[in-house]
């Protein structure tokens, strides 16, 4: 793994989450710092704080239930002791799924990553950032414009590839996405590229025929490179509510998602849904997107995420 400035990552994530933090911590702080006792009202308010962060009803209830029991067992009487416990609980859920992307799993080059997600989640932008990340490490990167459906999707990817210094394989609008992917893979092999990113058209997970189209892409590229795709990266929009779990579940069932990138964490969306997704599906959390700039992509860090989420010294 490459050397990264840990504090830099942390700083950026913090910046991205600062708005979130103010809202969330505003709630938690007010609740837990005032030296009040542990009562029903406290639990209820705590529940609301987690719900407001999109953590979801089920996970919230199980978190609160766990805290209740520990509070009883540990003889905790002050509200201020709850926060470290809560932070610990969320961290326990996320930590095991903080698994950075590793290229070593690729038996042979190129490492093929297919990027999928619903419309507007940020697939193309994330690919731009990812391509840049690897080209700046000196890797040779190829990008396949397999979103042949949306108007100007190819042009958008083309601009990102230029910015990132990556090769692009494109067909015409309306071409078969798997044909584009296949050609790109062959080209990537011929040009000895380290990585191939396949951009796919956004599709709602409920459209079965479109999910079939993605399956076809995986089948077709496996013909050329049997172990490919080596990563199926699902892009989730942090603004999305509980539907993100359904998305992750459905895409995972159909295609075997091997990694998740959480985008748009620079807004006021709290991204708490990732806790629920991690708990239910246990898919590795790879990256977070914190802006529109080419550098605004970070490796997911459970500690930084939880720290930023619950940090009391804003």
């Amino acid at each position: 793994m490459e050397q990264r400035d840990k504090s830099g990552v942390f700083q950026r994530l913090r910046q991205g989450l600062s708005k979130t933090q103010r809202l969330l911590v505003g709630g938690v702080d007010g609740l837990l710092r005032s030296g009040r006792g542990v009562d029903e009202e406290l639990w209820e308010e705590l529940e609301e704080v987690l719900i407001a962060a999109d953590v979801g009803v089920l996970v919230t209830q199980s978190l609160i239930e766990g805290l209740r029991q520990e509070t009883k067992r540990g003889g905790i009487t002050g509200a201020q002791e709850i926060l470290p416990l809560l932070r610990q609980k969320v961290l326990e859920i996320l930590k095991p799924h903080e698994v950075p992307l590793s290229l070593d799993t690729a038996v042979e080059y190129p490492f093929v990553m297919m990027v999928i997600g619903v419309n507007g989640a940020g697939k193309t932008t994330t690919i731009g950032k990812l391509a840049h990340r690897f080209t700046s490490q000196g890797k040779k990167v190829m990008v396949a414009a397999s979103d042949t459906f949306r108007a100007a999707a190819i042009e958008q990817l083309e601009i990102w590839s230029q910015r990132a210094g990556a090769h692009l394989i494109r067909h015409r609008n309306g071409a078969d996405p798997s044909a584009v992917a296949f050609d790109a893979l062959k080209a990537a092999i011929a040009r000895r590229c380290h990585l191939l990113f396949i951009d796919t058209a956004g599709r709602l997970h409920t459209k079965e025929n479109l999910i079939e189209e993605l399956k076809k892409v995986t089948r077709v590229i496996a013909k050329e490179s049997p172990s490919a795709p080596h990563e199926v990266l699902l892009i989730l929009d942090a603004t999305t509510g509980q539907n993100a779990i359904v998305q992750a579940r459905t895409f995972n069932q159909a295609l075997g998602v091997t990694g998740i990138a959480l985008t748009k964490l620079d807004g006021t969306a709290k991204g708490g849904i990732v806790v629920a997704v991690a708990q239910e599906l246990g898919i590795p959390l790879r990256f977070i997107g914190v802006g529109e700039g080419i550098d605004d992509l970070q490796e997911f860090s459970a500690d930084a995420f939880v720290e930023a989420l619950f940090n009391q010294t804003t």
Partner: peptide
């Protein structure tokens, strides 16, 4: 606005 938006919908709309 995206119909899939979560709790943040109120912040976005208000903003």
């Amino acid at each position: 606005a995206d119909a899939m938006t979560g709790q943040d919908a109120v912040n976005v709309a208000k903003g």
